[in-house]
Simulated scan of single mutants.
Amino acid sequence: MKDFNGKVAFITGGASGAGFGQAQVFGRAGCRIVIADIRQDALDDATSRLRAEGIEVHSVRLDISDRAAYAAAADEVEAVFGGPPQLLFNTAGVNSFGPLENATYEDFDWIFGVNLNGVINGIQTFLPRMIASGRDGHIVTTSSMGGFAGSATAAIYNATKAALINLMESYAITLPKYGIGASVLCPASIRSNIADAQDTRPAHLAANSGFRSDEAFIELQRRLYSGGMDPVELAGHVKRAIENNDLYILPYPETKEAVRAHFEKILDAFAARDSDPEGAQQRAQAFEEYRAEAAKTAGSTK
């Protein structure tokens, strides 16, 4: 996709941070912007700032973990703009830190509910509408460099982000036949307010947590993210990736060697010497035959 003029872009977490940067960059490129966020005060402020730039914008208050609310938001977008978005940015996310062994069900439910289920809800809600429209499109999901490895203190967050990488790799395989691209953005650090994500945690999931949420720790996180990449700069990388139809958006070269070392450990774990090379060859052939047959029949299973 090279021309963004007049296209509708739906951005979750669009009232601040990476989402607001995307709203600015794609709005300046001519997109009609929909920002969705759970915080009405942030939506109001972001809407005013975007309109001051001359950007056409519509705001929707949305809890992305609520499927019924997502469907209503999609209906509202179609009512306002006459059709579904051509650009879907799954940008909203939350985090909480603490030793994994201290995690509660509520910690898992909140982080998975927003970071993974929220993305699933967005794609499941909009993708059928995007396909039915017959127009070109692109879906960008924000994962994290943390999705490439485990973590002692951000384990749940990293697990959700790993799932998103794999999910978008799968969409990149399946969506081109519809004229829809797929990309996964993996930031390392963004100048954002994710340190204050606890403010949006529902009461029934906040009462029992094994992780830290005291003001001193939150302030430490604020200082960490204050040195992150500017959201507008990050959104510029996203725009170029869409123009080039790139799957991976990895604009943090300082993390490359750590990723390389991680995958080298995985490769080193393969047996150095196969005791049954003929059997391995037969298994590989059988698997390739299965993959080819599955690819031919997948379209007829629905």
Rank of each mutant, 00 (worst) to 15 (best):
T153I: 14
L224A: 08
R291V: 11
F108E: 10
S133L: 04
S59E: 08
M168P: 01
T255Y: 09
S96C: 02
T297Y: 01
S226M: 03
K302E: 12
G21R: 03
A152G: 14
A36Q: 09
G13W: 01
A241K: 07
A269Y: 07
A172M: 07
L167C: 04
K161S: 06
G146S: 11
P251E: 10
Y171D: 05
E293W: 07
P253Y: 05
H204M: 08
R51A: 08
C186D: 06
Y290C: 08
C31P: 09
N102C: 10
L167F: 14
E78T: 04
A188L: 10
I111F: 01
T142H: 02
D214E: 11
R240C: 02
Y70H: 11
N193K: 10
M145L: 14
Y70I: 03
V184H: 01
D109A: 15
N117G: 00
T297C: 00
A103H: 09
A72R: 13
A235W: 01
E76M: 01
N90C: 06
C31R: 05
D246R: 10
M145N: 07
S16Q: 15
I194E: 00
R49H: 08
V77G: 09
A46R: 07
I194T: 09
A9D: 06
S209T: 14
I173H: 04
I120E: 05
F211Y: 13
A298M: 13
V232C: 07
E288F: 12
V114L: 01
K177Y: 05
A132D: 15
Y157L: 00
G30V: 07
I180K: 00
F148A: 13
R51E: 14
K7Y: 05
N193T: 13
G83W: 07
A92G: 06
D199S: 06
K296A: 14
Q221K: 09
S96G: 13
Q124I: 00
A73P: 11
N121E: 06
D44P: 02
I55L: 12
E257V: 04
R291N: 05
A149I: 03
V25Y: 03
I11R: 07
V25G: 08
L88I: 05
I11T: 03
F97R: 07
R39V: 02
V184F: 02
F26P: 13
G82E: 11
Y290G: 07
F287Y: 14
R67F: 14
G83A: 03
C31E: 09
A298F: 11
Q86C: 03
L185R: 04
A280S: 15
P277V: 11
Q221T: 02
M145W: 00
A15N: 06
S209N: 06
R212G: 04
A9M: 11
E289L: 13
P99V: 01
T47N: 10
K302R: 12
F270I: 08
E78I: 02
V80G: 02
Q282C: 02
Q285H: 09
A163Q: 12
F263D: 06
A162C: 06
